[in-house]
Design a protein around this nucleic acid. Structure first.
Lengths: 115, 115
DNA sequence: ACCAGTACATAGTATCGCTGAATAGCAGCT
DNA sequence: AGCTGCTATTCAGCGATACTATGTACTGGT
């Protein structure tokens, strides 16, 4: 992708990760891999780990260290009550924004240019 | 709104403004007012003006100074060819992201279940 | 003269995601 | 034992964006 995606991910990537953790606990490497599978091929590992540190410091997740058979111990993150509330607000914010943007999209379909 | 919205607007606000300009030319103050009408009550004027300066410097818009009866001359921005292409890419990026996020939303609404 | 409304501009701050590298454990191969 | 590759986490420095707060400039009403 490119710069547009990078900027657009600001604020939403956090929600995406929280939503994934809302489904089931996971650790950083796993989350990165899952995102890649879903098409986010350009998201750097470092980005996810930094994000996980942030949401941990804000108390949105609980952490448990689990030994791995193939490397250093995994830090397994799970969404706690505070995180669930935050995720709920994320969905509200997202819905608000998405609704208005879709409205703009339908309002003036930009299908006139050719590439 | 709050901090979530602030972060989420990064990257999307530019697309929103370009989409508005794609509908018809407009000037900064007007754009700000229209955004407020649409529910974006917390978007500061300074944010819009700074954004307009950026997209002008990138050559995405053409500018025309039009005298106003009630204040300093208006800077009317209109989307040019380059800007249209950029807007088109914005919609692609947005669609990609929105699709995946909606999938996450539908994927695990409130319950966590096994697949 | 004062103030509200219109209209634009900007310096300073905080946050976020990316780049690039370092650190560390384990397995298989030579 | 050393090398390579995969797993797994961490961190410093950078670029881009939106917000805060303020300032400038013009018009009309009181």
């Amino acid at each position: 992708m490119g710069k547009q995606m990078t900027e657009m991910l600001k604020g939403t990537l956090e929600g995406i990760v929280l939503a994934i953790l809302g489904g089931q606990p996971a650790y950083g490497y796993e989350i990165t891999a899952r995102l890649r599978d879903q098409g986010f091929t350009d998201i750097a590992e470092g980005t996810i780990y930094a994000l996980l540190v942030r949401i941990e410091q804000r108390g949105l997740v609980d952490v448990e260290k689990v030994p791995s058979e193939k490397g250093p111990p995994r830090k397994v993150y799970s969404l706690n009550t505070l995180g669930s509330g935050y995720l709920e607000e994320f969905w509200k914010t997202w819905s608000f924004l998405a609704e208005r943007i879709e409205h703009l999209h339908i309002g003036h379909p930009q299908e006139q240019g050719e590439k």
